[in-house]
Amino acid sequence: MSFSSDDIKNVATLARLHVDEEKVEKLGQDINNILALVDQLKAVDTTGIEPMAHPMDAVQILRADEVTETDQREKFQACAPATEEGLYLVPKVIE
């Protein structure tokens, strides 16, 4: 398929990215080129082939449900843009 300007804007919103109006056309062209590359996959017969999620087909390892981490909230929040009393600050969500 070919990507239109509206498609770019829709996908950008899903990805939480703001795309400047003057960049939409070039971006659409880039993405169409990449999709043309990727579309080579469509011609491949993959009937009955199990999708490969892990090279060794490993499955998720479970550990015992024990407390292993200590509370380091202050250290972890030291790199946050805005915090107050141990909470992350964001713009008002509910009026």
Binding site: T46, E50, P51
Partner: peptide, 18 residues
């Protein structure tokens, strides 16, 4: 995104196994 997963990611993961 909805409706494209199998055509792209699923397909690519199958090709990956090949």
């Amino acid at each position: 995104s909805a409706g494209y997963y199998d055509a792209y990611y699923g397909k690519a993961q199958q090709v990956r196994r090949l």
